[in-house]
Design a protein around this nucleic acid. Sequence first.
DNA 1: GTCTATAACACGATAGAC
DNA 2: GTCTATCGTGTTATAGAC
Lengths: 189, 189
Amino acid sequence: MKQETRKEEIINTAAKLFKEKGYSAVTMRDLAKAMGIKAASLYNHINSKQDILKEIIISIAEEFTKGMNTITKSNATNSIKLRNIVILHVNITAKNTNGMASLNNDWMHLEDQLDYYLKLRNEYEANFLNIIEQGILTSEIKQNNPEIILFSMLSTLRSLYLWIPKKDGLSGNDLANNLSQILIEGINT
Amino acid sequence: MKQETRKEEIINTAAKLFKEKGYSAVTMRDLAKAMGIKAASLYNHINSKQDILKEIIISIAEEFTKGMNTITKSNATNSIKLRNIVILHVNITAKNTNGMASLNNDWMHLEDQLDYYLKLRNEYEANFLNIIEQGILTSEIKQNNPEIILFSMLSTLRSLYLWIPKKDGLSGNDLANNLSQILIEGINT
DNA sequence: GTCTATAACACGATAGAC
DNA sequence: GTCTATCGTGTTATAGAC
């Protein structure tokens, strides 16, 4: 287990507070208090509040992009690709539920990195949609509006951060299996 | 068509801004600018920023409670009750997409009304879960973890506010039909 | 109903001592 | 690496003129 640096400690504490109240409502004094130090001391480890948000969101966004690229390039059927997307979301979210809250709810407060984030998100959604459309073409998936299927699946997967912490009795594997059944078998032919 | 009072105009403008940046990131000066007046003038129509949030969220929450009570009391099958819940969400969201953003994302910034809001939400979810559980008992719905089904459906329905404005080509009816198919026929036996 | 002016306080961030 | 002190600015909200 890698030793957590002070900077990482600050970022993880910030992510937890951002999840509870959102980026804008959390002050540097709140964050310092949660760390047991004074606000001024934070600036020995981070450059700005904005920098914390950037580190939380961009690292996760790039993780999703990397996972999606692996899935896209694979030779699996479209149904299995969709199942692998479910697993990707469950895994990343289970590893960092707090950070996922910022990614979902506070991305619009990114400054310098906003365009980059939006680019990654748009590409991700386009790849996701493409798999659904291909699945319909090959008759793996029921004839239905592919954008509504995408919307429905993404809504559920993006909300996982709210739900995984409440259900830690359920293993990641069980959750991925249950979700795949509900999200994918429902749309399969 | 009822004439919009100045107060309602402020609340609707605020809801639009809250959707874009969240309650905490929107200042009274932002709101005043969007209304074409000065911040101080707002206080002739509303008591506080907090009051605006309260009016946006509580009115919608009570609308959901009212709709759910009607569905719960009806003699419909559980499948039809679920379909009526989908329709309830589509209708309320289509009528007030901006307000739905505050309900979903800024409820934690409620002060005096926070407990009341949480009570309404918990009762709503309990009723929703009960219908799913009854549906499984009567074999209308596939044997599956009822809480995961609830989570998946609610995630999609709660995200509608993001999606309805982009798809105004689709009528409310078509959307409800498509969503019912994807959300319910997938879980039906 | 809107304005200007301002009170009272919170914010992010920096300087410099230890 | 943390502290105290503080700068400059932004925040909600009020007072009182028009």
